[in-house]
């Protein structure tokens, strides 16, 4: 993703203004530059997310974190909606649960997610979401697209069949590693992640082989070679620490 300059995590000085709002009838306070999602998590209120990851710029792409705000008929993606004074947020209505379930179903139907043969089985965020939301079967038809697997890299594999297009790899590579190896090509249902200008990953001249993309990937799309079924656990927790240390240094 060719990131907009303004979208880079340049860590502006945190705002000193604090807002008070209610989330699911609980009074909480948050800085005005914090999102509803941040405020909810700090108070132990869990909102399902997929594209969001601490340490990366939120993009509001998966739409799982949509919440209701009293006084508006529109829904808001809580990862990109800042808190407001007196806001009354509902995170878990029947309507929202229903939508989230359908969105997870849409993701399962889009590509070929076959947990039984997946290296990330048991460590997969998409699978966890399905369990959390009670998606036991699909009401929408499977699309069963024919998609390639890129195993040209000596250490990593990119399996498009398991990609959910959350763009975490694109963002971590551009924003944190600074290599911008990953990007997207095509549009709509034909969108795919690519390395360099759609070259095999193994021949990429920009990839530093750091593996950050693999560990932030929520599913078994980006994995390490040599892992068999169920073995590929991701370590994405390096990210908030890394971002925090960098922000400190820049001050």
């Amino acid at each position: 993703m060719s990131s907009r300059p303004s979208a880079k995590p340049t860590a502006p000085a945190p705002s000193s203004k604090v807002k008070t709002l209610t989330i699911d009838d609980r009074l909480v306070s948050a800085r005005e530059d914090e999102s509803i999602l941040d405020a909810a998590r700090q108070n132990g209120i869990q909102i399902p997310t997929l594209c969001n990851l601490d340490g990366l710029t939120p993009v509001g792409a998966c739409r799982l974190c949509m919440v209701e705000v009293k006084g508006s008929s529109k829904l808001f993606a809580s990862c990109v909606t800042m808190v407001g004074e007196g806001m009354e947020v509902v995170t878990d209505s029947e309507r929202l649960q229903n939508y989230r379930k359908t969105i997870v179903e849409l993701l399962f139907s889009e590509r070929n997610h076959i947990c039984a043969v997946c290296v990330s089985n048991g460590h997969c965020e998409l699978q966890n979401l399905a369990q959390l939301l009670g998606v036991t079967h699909l009401t929408v038809p499977y699309r069963n697209p024919k998609l390639p697997v890129d195993a040209s890299h000596e250490r990593f594999v990119n399996d498009h069949n398991r990609c959910v297009l959350c763009q975490r790899c694109v963002r971590v590579c551009g924003e944190v590693e600074g290599a911008h190896t990953w990007d997207l090509r095509g549009r709509g249902i034909d969108t795919r992640v690519i390395t360099d200008l759609n070259q095999p990953w193994g021949s990429s001249e920009t990839c530093t082989g750091c593996g950050k993309c693999v560990h932030v990937c929520p599913t078994g799309a980006l994995t390490e070679k040599g892992k068999s079924i169920r073995e590929m656990a991701k370590q994405s927790r390096f990210l908030p620490y890394l971002t925090m240390m960098r922000e400190d240094r820049s001050e």
Binding site: A61, R63, L106, E110, V140, L165, G186, G188, D190
Partner: peptide, 14 residues
């Protein structure tokens, strides 16, 4: 559809 958000990307195809 640009393919960024799930409901539009997959929903329109479905």
């Amino acid at each position: 559809s640009c393919g960024k958000c799930v409901p539009c990307r997959v929903g329109t195809a479905q």
